[in-house]
Design a binder for these strands. Structure first.
Length: 255
DNA sequence: GCCCAGGGTGTTT
DNA sequence: AAACACCATGGG
């Protein structure tokens, strides 16, 4: 892992608060913490307790890739294309909101929305703004969020924030429930369907078997893996999904 | 001006 | 169950 390959993990569509600076360093934020990663402090950041957990440093991704290579040659190719890609341990609430806002939206605009949300309704720790707590969004009106550019998703976000603020969701429980039950809890929230629920499960709750199926993945499955289903990729299907998503977005000529 | 973007919801066949 | 309209916004 170096500054150039860090993008495989923080700029692959699973998070929206990382930005590469002109000098090659990365400025990133997660939950209520932020960091600037340079060539000098990279290994230090990755051994810090919080960021090591965030980057899932305790997991052997090489072993997962080898399993994928044995499973399917094209999946193996996608995995080898981004050997430093890891599934982040994001804050569940932040991940849920981010992907609720992602529907019918592009990554650049999602990043702008999340940034404005943090600056406007997060708590500022110096130059770093935290992601707003559910309680901070629950008291807003739909119009407040439309003013930030959330569009029709504003009502979904306020509605979901109110449900979470009143304790309707137990994120810790969602880590342990069978996947389909956890998914049912999430899709009961306004604006949360199957795809957003899978994103919250994979990126926020580290359920590595969850397989978000967006427009890119539907295309990729049809073209690259005809006749195969997410379950065929096993207990790490979500990791496979991320390799495929990243590979597909960097090879648009395939579609 | 048009098309699309890591979809969800409600309604109609 | 599958198809459809509608939902806002801005980047390319």
């Amino acid at each position: 892992m170096n500054l150039d390959t860090l993008g495989q993990t923080v700029d692959c569509g699973q998070c929206f608060r990382w930005e590469r600076l002109p000098d090659g360093s990365w400025s990133g934020a997660a939950g209520s913490r932020c960091v600037q990663v340079t060539g000098e402090n990279l290994s230090g950041v990755l051994s810090d307790a919080f960021w090591a957990d965030y980057f899932d440093m305790g997991r052997d991704y090489e072993a997962i890739r080898e399993r994928f290579c044995a499973l399917d040659p094209i999946l193996g190719q996608a995995a080898r294309y981004a050997p430093d890609l890891r599934i982040l341990n994001q804050d569940p609430w932040e991940a849920l909101c981010s992907f609720l806002l992602s529907q019918c939206n592009n990554i650049k605009r999602i990043k702008g929305l999340v940034s404005r949300l943090c600056k406007t309704y997060g708590e500022s720790n110096g130059a770093c703004a935290s992601f707003p707590r559910p309680e901070a969004l629950a008291v807003l009106s739909e119009q407040d969020l439309r003013a930030l550019g959330c569009g029709y998703r504003a009502g979904y976000l306020v509605g979901t924030a109110r449900r979470v603020a009143e304790g309707a969701l137990d994120f810790d429980l969602l880590r342990r429930l069978p996947l389909e039950e956890a998914k049912r809890e999430l899709t009961a929230l306004p604006g949360v369907g199957p795809k957003v629920a899978d994103c919250a499960l994979l990126y926020g709750l580290h359920r590595l078997e969850a397989f978000p199926m967006d427009v890119w993945m539907k295309r990729a499955m049809k073209v690259l893996f005809p006749g195969r289903k997410p379950e065929d990729f096993g207990e790490y299907a979500g990791v496979a999904q991320q390799y495929i998503f990243h590979y597909s977005r960097n090879h648009p000529e395939l579609f």
